[in-house]
Nucleic acid binder design. Sequence first.
DNA 1: TGATATACTGTATGATATACAGTATTGTAT
DNA 2: ATACAATACTGTATATCATACAGTATATCA
Lengths: 111, 111
Amino acid sequence: MSIEAEMNRGFLQILALVALEESLYGYRMLKNFEEIGYTVEENTLYPLLRRLEQAGLINSKWSISQDRPRKFYHITPKGRKVREKLLTIRRTQNMVLEKVLEAQKNGKKAE
Amino acid sequence: MSIEAEMNRGFLQILALVALEESLYGYRMLKNFEEIGYTVEENTLYPLLRRLEQAGLINSKWSISQDRPRKFYHITPKGRKVREKLLTIRRTQNMVLEKVLEAQKNGKKAE
DNA sequence: TGATATACTGTATGATATACAGTATTGTAT
DNA sequence: ATACAATACTGTATATCATACAGTATATCA
């Protein structure tokens, strides 16, 4: 795995938990994310969904009413709690990153 | 590893590459990050620094001029390139996240 | 003098992104 | 009608990384 690919870790968890406030099946999420400029591989998303379900953060049910069987996922109350925690972590990280970038710009060399 | 801990992945790479525009040794980075509100475990940072060096993104030299031997790290040109790429990825992710959060707020249920 | 902080090293473990291989249906072009 | 791409999944394998664990050695201060 490349250093750039490593960036997906953590982030896709949040994205999925936010998106699954609405009921969605895997393939649809994939296409939705792609539309808004974030391409995710199915090899990444499907196993993630399985893990999130195992952790009780989302649940699933098969829908056979449509033309083709689809597994719809939806966030659970536990998932909502974790989602808020993750969003907080992410925002803290953004603030920390801004601070360190700012410190560089203001030239620490002088010290 | 918990889902929350997973959030470190990717992020600490960027943070280190930004911080190492200035020459620093591991323990100092640890304390710097702690000061600005981001606690990192040494078990996380030290192996990361080894990996970044192996990948040629940072280099190191021992300093024995002080009271105690310290390994100072510094970013390489290659490291700067990767850093910019990672910052771009991070910013894209933030934008994508905002979009999905916004879409939820504006109630997709009606559709 | 003995505990605590500093400042590292090396290897092990477990979780995850991605890879690989496979199943089955639907829609479209030939 | 028939092949081909797109849809929509499943299951297991591999490699990388965060974290754990264990260890070394000097400095500081009660």
